[in-house]
Amino acid sequence: MNREITYQAAKAVAGTVEKHFVQYLREARERGEQASAPEPHAKVIAAMIDTAFWASLRREEGHSPKISLAFLPPEQAIRPLVFEQRLPLTSHMLTKIAPGVERSGIHLGVWYEGEELYIWGTMHEISTFCFVLDVSEPGLLVIKHRRKGGFGKFNNVAVLKGDQIKVVDETSANLPDCPDVLTSLLGFAAASSWNDSVNVLVQLAVSMRAHGRGGSLLVVPSGKEDWRNSIMHPIQYAVAPAFSELAELMRQDIAERTRSSWQTALRQAIDSIAGLTAVDGATVITDQYELLAFGAKIVRAWESAQVEQMVFTEPVIGGEAMVVPPGQTGGTRHLSAAQFVHDQRDALALVASQDGRFTIFTWSPCEEMVHAHRVDALLL
């Protein structure tokens, strides 16, 4: 591709992204898996990022474009919508076509002939490890691919925001204190378990972040009442008996979970709980997904020390573990979540900020303190 690249971050990240996809595709083939996605060359990656970035800064009838580009030829797409005439891959063209393809799950197909990239149509389904570039908001791009098996959200590879580049560090999953929910976000959970266990928490996190109002979700052990020692009483929005819609869905057998009606019900149940986290205070569920309360005010447990420091990490290349005061990572929600996990060490706290930041708080047995995992780069 001979086009001039003017967005410097595109040049900086293209080689790293190329190596990621080449390695994933090679390993998949060595395992005997079907991996038909083409390997994106660094020049293609840089050109697509450059075009998408400048398109993200344009506006059409007052709206910024939200689009998803997939590098795939039409003959490899499943039930594609193919244009009679190819469209040039330019920022102007992306801005013009964006209103018709901004809904979730629609990808614009991008391929090349000679030295020119073009848009050939749209598709809903793409192959595993296909290079996907999402324009999420002005200046914010996410490079990702579909996870193995096609279940759940895509795996993020890198996030670009202005001149800031965050490349996901998959080795974070090997850290001794890495919680299962982070392992799932990094893409190491089995595809068959996407609708099980911690993967429900991933979907709750995505939904919490999507409503954009900020919120806190506390996950406490089922059958135990210790968590109440860290909540102000009376609880204004306590739920009795516990609301078990999500729990009942998760108890249904595997065959039932393949039905579209079950998947729709699951999304609705998750969005309902995630919506409650927007209410001032924290939403409380058990690790079996029973809703116990929302709008709960977190307090320091009786005779417990105030949390003064914690470990902070972000699973991106170059990100180093730091010991920081809880207030350094956010506001009141973050402080109270850190205190809750400090006092209730078998609990988990998920905190969404209004600005899109998302943090998972867990207790670290290795460090003997609260561990804050910044994961918004994995949720976009």
Rank of each mutant, 00 (worst) to 15 (best):
206 V>M: 04
266 L>P: 01
375 V>C: 08
277 T>F: 03
232 M>E: 13
125 E>M: 11
92 H>P: 05
100 G>D: 15
341 V>S: 05
363 W>N: 01
242 A>W: 02
55 A>S: 11
328 Q>L: 15
303 E>R: 12
293 A>N: 02
256 E>W: 00
18 E>T: 05
337 A>H: 09
261 S>H: 02
166 K>E: 05
350 L>R: 02
361 F>E: 07
65 P>M: 09
204 L>R: 02
156 N>E: 05
116 E>S: 14
318 G>E: 01
360 I>W: 04
203 Q>L: 08
180 D>T: 02
212 G>N: 04
221 P>N: 07
284 V>S: 03
230 S>R: 04
192 S>Y: 02
34 Q>D: 10
49 I>L: 12
344 Q>S: 10
142 V>I: 14
27 E>F: 10
277 T>W: 01
207 S>Y: 08
250 M>E: 08
216 S>I: 15
283 T>I: 03
367 E>D: 13
264 T>D: 12
323 V>W: 01
73 P>G: 10
232 M>A: 12
44 V>G: 06
111 W>P: 05
96 K>P: 04
212 G>V: 14
217 L>C: 07
180 D>H: 01
105 G>E: 12
180 D>E: 07
25 L>Q: 13
350 L>H: 13
161 K>I: 04
194 W>D: 11
221 P>G: 06
191 A>N: 05
239 V>D: 06
39 E>Q: 12
250 M>S: 09
14 A>Q: 06
351 V>I: 00
344 Q>C: 12
218 L>C: 04
42 A>H: 07
80 P>S: 11
171 T>Y: 01
241 P>Y: 01
243 F>A: 15
81 L>T: 11
138 P>Y: 01
67 I>N: 06
26 R>H: 15
317 I>M: 10
281 G>E: 02
215 G>I: 04
210 A>N: 11
239 V>Q: 02
144 K>M: 02
317 I>N: 00
101 V>W: 00
359 T>N: 13
85 Q>Y: 15
221 P>M: 09
156 N>L: 08
201 L>G: 07
140 L>S: 12
269 A>P: 03
221 P>E: 07
174 N>R: 00
172 S>H: 03
320 E>L: 15
156 N>G: 12
174 N>W: 00
292 L>V: 13
358 F>Y: 15
104 S>T: 13
59 R>W: 05
136 S>L: 11
309 Q>C: 10
338 A>T: 04
285 I>R: 09
150 G>L: 04
155 N>H: 10
87 L>H: 04
58 R>F: 03
312 F>T: 02
107 H>G: 03
129 F>N: 14
339 Q>D: 06
296 A>M: 08
230 S>K: 06
192 S>G: 06
168 V>S: 04
276 L>W: 00
134 D>M: 03
72 L>G: 08
364 S>R: 00
203 Q>T: 06
67 I>W: 02
